[in-house]
Write a protein that binds this DNA or RNA. Structure first.
Lengths: 212, 212
DNA sequence: CAGTGTGAAGAGGTTCACAGCG
DNA sequence: CGCTGTGAACCTCTTCACACTG
């Protein structure tokens, strides 16, 4: 048993991408009062093979007990540590339209590691108004205020036409990860993380498989 | 040039998953007034190699002209056909909370192949009220009304606790594709399509790579 | 001669199958 | 005896490199 579990360099992105889903499922199991689970149970819930789940986890350590399975609370803690959500991440929300509004009201972020700290918009009608307990700030002050608060994560909920310009500001402000709801590809430095959510893209991924 | 382009069976899902992004990018180029593009230009915009784009497209046919590139309008039409969005898909929206509200107001669906036809909720306070021009229908009538309208695509924007129960109703109603916004894994028959959007999962995929 | 389409090579990811351990 | 952890086999996906063509 030599030392392994190398630092994030040789861990496949696709494995990292599954961990949050494992974590979410484990939380559900915990909420159901369960204490122990197995790779086959997790696999059955998620539509994956048990081997895949064991292999994925094995990149990071040995978390299970042979013959027994995984202690749910323990595995939750390990995944939180691996994903760096064993602490809170401050988030800046940019865009106070319908979607920004829904995100600002969403209560699901907090217990999973994220907390919205600021909301920005460029519309003078919205600046200064309240949104879910935040006052909407002027986008013109975005760089300074995000920098001062040392926020590293942003959610982008602006129209596609504004997305790249805002992204450039976010880079200037020191943002390192963007959850992009604008239906357009963003250009960012290679070491900045981007995840895209475009409902139409997701819908079109399904219609291909439908008859008719 | 023998006949190939076999029906969807041996086309990798991962390739299908990129096509909507290609389509979106092509539309942007068209809106910029461009007529011709190349695999390298598309690749540069999307952070992919030109070879990948050519290979992906080659699963479906020969759409480019050597030495020249791709005619943007023509490639858009081909991708719309392949993705089956050269027609409109009726969509049922389930859940009239903040997120459902944002989806109901979103104007981006129509020009990309989708049109919301019905909105459902189970909250008596909401049933019968107007939302973005729809009247919110009683979830108790979901099965009958979706069946009658022959709707095959649903967007699920209900709390995680209700998601599986609603999904079972959607199956009964004949839904074949679900865009799932509930932060939980859905269990569906193998031939039903599901795409999941959970902002926290997406955020957690990024924090892994951040320092600190 | 610029840029596609594509076999072949090379990476990368998944599944198998079983040793090992509680 | 059940279930993990893991090399090895297998399979899938990406990239290479070049023949081909407008």
């Amino acid at each position: 048993m030599p030392t392994k579990h190398a630092p994030q360099k040789d861990i496949p992105d696709i494995v990292v991408g599954r961990l949050p889903v494992y974590l979410r499922t484990l939380r559900t199991l915990a909420a159901e009062g369960r204490e122990i689970t197995s790779s086959s149970e997790l696999g059955a819930r998620l539509g994956l093979t048990s081997a895949q789940i064991r292999k994925d986890l094995s990149y990071f350590g040995e978390f299970g007990r042979q013959g027994l399975g995984y202690n749910i609370e323990f595995l939750i803690q390990q995944l939180r540590r691996i994903l760096k959500v064993d602490r809170m991440w401050d988030v800046a929300l940019v865009g106070a339209g319908d979607l920004g509004r829904a995100l600002a009201h969403y209560h699901g972020f907090h217990e999973r590691g994220f907390i919205i700290r600021m909301v920005f918009d460029s519309d003078p009608e919205k600046i200064g108004t309240q949104l879910a307990g935040f006052d909407v700030r002027d986008m013109a002050r975005l760089v300074g205020e995000i920098k001062a608060a040392q926020i590293k994560v942003a959610m982008l909920a602006v129209p596609a036409t504004a997305a790249q310009k805002v992204t450039d500001l976010l880079m200037e402000a020191g943002i390192r990860a963007i959850l992009n709801y604008a239906p357009t590809a963003l250009s960012v430095p290679r070491d900045v993380q981007v995840q895209n959510i475009d409902p139409t893209v997701h819908l079109q991924r399904m219609t291909f498989y439908l008859e008719g």
